[in-house]
Write a protein that binds this DNA or RNA. Structure first.
Length: 355
DNA sequence: AACGCGGGGGG
DNA sequence: CCCCCAGCGTT
């Protein structure tokens, strides 16, 4: 890796290339760039963790409309916050954002902290998000290392191996720190992210449009298609599940949902009752005097998470009330009501209601 | 150091 | 089908 330790001249030239590119081609009209504030940067950066810009934009608008200020977010309850995150995934981000808003209200007089130490002490803010808040929100000098920066720097130094290994993470952070300019770190970081998203893409990078072309080792060696190396593959397990879509005889647009525990998968979200086997589901129904004879099984559906695959069979049943067992965490979702629900539940609700 | 955590998009 | 994406917290 020839450029692992860039000289002062190379560093300066790298910075100038990015800042010059940003003036001409940088994305300055993204929603969180307009009348930007540290709070907007924080919310957008949190939504953008492992999530692409186009996916985030509509969620950002809705979220900022409902929680326009840090104070309004800290005053909300968790259900309201999760509801506005519903469908975006990685729901711990929303729970941490909300917790941090309350911590800031209580311990920072309602003002966003502006140091790396204070920011990374808040739940949901790691080193990279803190660097983004400091540079983009406060104009301070701070490095970032997200997926875009990893890819650009990996190609710049022709990194060997997968960027996610501990050793490569350390190396990439060191390079990022060293290259970040003292002044205009915000524009510099925005340029990195914009170039990563639009020029130095994972496949088919547009090297002729890249201001780093002449400095990029991977480009010189014509191996941008093999750098960065992809994550070592590993097969993921498959789980089977049955989801009981319980409808109400008295109101055929009401559906029975249960709230998941506060942490873990879909934490705090509302889902159909889920079972590991069809027998478990039937037992649950019998205990509540639900007529199983007209239970309707739908075709199996598939939902893939990062770490396992869920093959689930939806089953529709009808009841007039849930007697027999007292329910603690259940509710009837009526038409027009909004709750925090994950994507598969949302899809099923739409599918059932439309037919 | 490895794993858990969603959902969507592109190849 | 595959891989990745403006990562972070937990173990």
């Amino acid at each position: 890796m020839p450029h692992e330790n860039p000289t002062q001249i190379e560093t300066l030239s790298f910075q100038q290339a990015l800042l010059g590119w940003y003036d001409r081609y940088g994305r300055k009209n993204l929603p969180w760039k307009l009348e930007t504030t540290p709070y907007k940067v924080w919310v957008s950066e949190t939504m953008l963790q492992q999530t692409q810009v186009n996916t985030v934009i509509p969620y950002f608008f809705r979220f900022m409309q409902r929680f326009p200020t840090l104070e309004s977010l800290s005053a909300a309850n968790q259900d309201q916050v999760l509801q506005h995150w519903s469908g975006l995934g990685y729901y711990a981000r929303a729970r941490n954002l909300h917790r941090s808003a309350r911590l800031i209200a209580d311990h920072h007089a309602g003002e966003m902290p502006a140091t790396l130490e204070q920011l990374t002490a808040l739940p949901g803010i790691g080193r990279s998000t803190a660097g983004a808040i400091l540079s983009l929100g406060y104009g301070k000098c701070a490095a970032i290392l997200d997926g875009n920066v990893k890819r650009i720097l990996s190609r710049y130094v022709n990194l060997e191996g997968w960027p996610g290994t501990a050793a490569n993470q350390r190396l990439l952070w060191a390079i990022s720190e060293r290259l970040t300019p003292e002044k205009q770190a915000g524009d510099y970081n925005q340029a990195l992210m914009d170039i990563g998203a639009t020029v130095c893409t994972r496949t088919h990078p547009d090297c002729n449009a890249c201001p780093l072309q002449s400095a990029c080792t991977a480009h010189q060696l014509q191996c941008t298609d093999r750098v960065p190396a992809s994550k070592p593959g590993s097969s993921i397990p498959v789980r089977k599940s049955w989801m009981l879509i319980l409808r109400n005889n008295g109101d055929d647009n009401a559906f029975y949902l249960e709230k998941r525990p506060g942490a873990g998968l879909w934490g705090g979200l509302w889902v159909f009752p889920c079972f590991d086997s069809e027998a478990d589901m039937l037992t649950w129904c019998r205990q509540r005097r639900i007529d199983i004879s007209q239970l309707e099984l739908l075709p199996e559906q598939r939902h893939t998470f990062t770490h396992f695959r869920l093959d689930y069979t939806p089953a529709i049943a009808w009841t007039s009330s849930l007697d027999g067992v007292q329910e603690t965490s259940g509710c009837w979702l009526k038409a027009g009501e909004a709750l925090a629900i994950p994507a598969p539940v949302s899809r099923l609700l739409t599918e059932i209601t439309r037919r």
